[in-house]
Structure formats: structure tokens, C-alpha cells
Design a protein around this nucleic acid. Structure first.
Length: 308
DNA sequence: GCCCAGGTGAAGC
DNA sequence: GCTTCACATGGG
């Protein structure tokens, strides 16, 4: 094998010159575009063949190919664990798919969403984002969060020639704002919920890091203590930020999918659907949920998502 | 104008 | 337990 990846012509041969701004990760069954645009994270921007975002305060540009994801950062890094963790690159998705129930709806959903993955996001960003998500379209959630980050997120270094980038504002920062300032970011009645959550976290009344160690039900109970956080938002955070794979958020799309695919022409209440989901989809139910969500959105867009 | 959006919580049966 | 409604805001 040739030596390392040095692109400079003037490096001393005695020094190992390593490119600390780029790294290529081999992947299989990973559709990056589908994953980043599937309504679990709201800060990714497509730029030609690439996806640009900020993870844990780091600007990053990702370029997917059939068998790899090439990552580029603005500041040199030696440890890429933050990225492999975020993208869950070490997960064997086939193990997850094999755990799904062998029924027709799941076969159709997995066939339609090949390569769809779950991310592992920062808990605060995820919680705040989903507090802002209620009765909003994904596009609008993205707009609100973009505004919030531009106004109150700390600037981060981006690659040359790229537009300015911002990290997600911390709970401490948001806790200093007024409800009026938050409403000015177009979040409407969600503003007091976000403000209260930011204060709870900033004051240490809610310790997001401590939820990592808790079992699903206890962690959920903690999140449900927040105003504006119900079963759906709590389960999104548990699934997308804490890796609680049994969490099963039921939104209007998943509800429609469940009713249409599993209970056609029957009236089934939301609690009954949740009970069904908790027992039917196995240990990676949340993963199955994401496939159903994406499948429903791509297949049923022409019909109304609300229930008849 | 009208309906809807990755909901929640309060109020009414 | 289940249903209805208000809550802001913008897109189709």
C-alpha cells in the first residue's frame, strides 16, 4: 500500500502528514439523503451532491456515494467518533430489518425505504426541535430552527466560500431570552414551551445527560414533565437522541399508516394503536416506525393525512 | 378563503 | 376512557 494521504508537496518526509479535515467512511445500505431529510433532523441543507450541517458545534459537509460517505470539516480533527456516533455508522441495519414483523406492510415499507437510518442526535437540540414541531410541516420546522440558530446560535467556522454557520443555541442562551424574542422566530404558541424547557435544563431541574442511563419508561416520564411535551414528542426525543429503539412516536402519518395497513375499516383509538405498536414491531419498533413514517409520506401524499 | 401540518392540554361528556 | 377545541403561522 502507498503511504498516507498527504496532498502537500512540501512536507518533510520525516513527518507523517495526515489530512485531518477529510475522512471517508465505507458504508452499506445507507441512503444519506433519505436519512437526513426524513424529518428526524431539521438542520441539513442539500448542496448539489452534498449535505451540509452542524453536529455538536462542528460544521461538516457529507458527500455520499454508493459505498461510502466522505466527510469534510472546517477545523482539523483527529477523533471522528462524534460523526460515526451521529450517523450510527457501526450499526448493522440488516439485524434491525430482520427483527421487523414479517408482514406485508413492513415488507412494503422496507422495500420503499431501503437505506433509511436513524441518527443519534444531541438531546437538547432534538428536544427543542420537536417542541417546535407540533402541528408544523417539516419545511416550516426547518425555517423556524434556521431563524433560531441564526439569531441565537454561536457562529461556527465553515469551509472557505460557504455561508455562515451556527451551532444550535444552548439551553442557557435560550433561557435568557424573552417569549417575545422567541415568538419573533415564528414559533407561535410553542415559544413559552421552548422557553420553559430551556430554563428547566439551564437550572438543572431537568438533567438531559442523566436520561441516558434510565430505562425507557423512566426517561419518558421525565420528558413528559415538560409543558408542551406529550407522548409523541417525548418518544421522538427518546428514539432520535437517546437510541431508545422501542420508543414509537405516533404522529398523524404513522397513525394513518397503522390504521390503513393494519386496521382497515375499523375504529381504533390512539392508545390502542400505541399498545399494538408496543407489542407488534419488536425490539426495534422505533426503527420500524421511521420506515412506516417515510413510507406513508411518500405513498400517501395525495390523500389527507388526518383520519376520516 | 379553506385545510392542514412529525401535538398538547384543558374541558366536556 | 374518548372527543373537541384553541393555540400561531405559512404552504398548497
Amino acid at each position: 500500500m502507498a503511504n498516507s494521504c498527504c496532498a502537500h508537496s512540501n512536507c518533510s518526509p520525516a513527518v507523517v502528514c495526515v489530512d485531518l479535515r477529510n475522512k471517508t467512511f465505507p458504508v452499506r445500505d445507507y441512503d444519506l439523503g433519505m436519512t437526513l431529510s426524513s424529518g428526524q433532523a431539521f438542520r441539513w441543507r442539500q448542496e448539489g451532491e452534498t449535505w451540509v450541517g452542524v453536529i455538536h458545534g462542528r460544521w461538516v459537509r457529507l458527500r455520499p456515494s454508493a459505498s461510502s460517505i466522505m466527510a469534510e470539516v472546517a477545523q482539523p480533527v483527529r477523533d471522528w467518533n462524534w460523526l460515526t456516533e451521529y450517523l450510527q455508522l457501526e450499526l448493522d441495519v440488516n439485524t434491525v430489518l430482520a427483527s421487523f414483523p414479517d408482514d406485508e406492510p413492513m415488507q412494503a415499507a422496507t422495500a420503499a425505504c431501503r437505506g433509511l437510518r436513524l441518527l443519534r442526535q444531541d438531546p437538547w437540540e432534538c428536544l427543542a426541535s420537536f417542541i417546535l414541531s407540533s402541528t408544523k410541516q417539516i419545511l416550516q420546522i426547518q425555517q423556524i430552527i434556521t431563524l433560531l440558530c441564526q439569531r441565537y446560535g454561536p457562529p461556527v467556522l465553515a469551509a472557505l466560500g460557504c455561508p455562515p454557520a451556527y451551532a444550535f443555541p444552548s439551553p442557557d442562551r435560550l433561557a435568557t431570552l424573552s417569549e417575545t424574542e422567541l415568538r419573533a422566530c415564528k414559533m407561535g404558541f410553542r415559544a413559552p414551551f421552548l422557553l420553559a424547557a430551556a430554563r428547566e435544563v439551564a437550572e438543572g431541574k431537568l438533567q438531559l445527560n442523566a436520561l441516558v442511563k434510565l430505562p425507557l419508561n423512566s426517561a419518558r416520564a421525565e420528558l413528559l414533565g415538560l409543558a408542551g411535551v406529550g407522548r409523541k414528542i417525548s418518544d421522538c426525543v427518546l428514539l432520535f437522541a437517546y437510541g431508545q429503539q422501542a420508543a414509537f412516536p405516533v404522529d398523524v402519518w404513522v397513525m394513518k399508516a397503522l390504521r390503513q395497513l393494519y386496521f382497515p375499516r375499523r375504529k381504533v383509538s390512539l392508545p390502542r394503536l400505541q399498545e399494538f405498536a408496543a407489542t407488534h414491531f419488536g425490539p426495534h419498533a422505533g426503527y420500524a416506525q421511521q420506515y412506516l413514517f417515510h413510507y406513508a409520506r411518500s405513498q400517501m401524499k395525495r390523500t389527507t393525512p388526518s383520519t376520516p
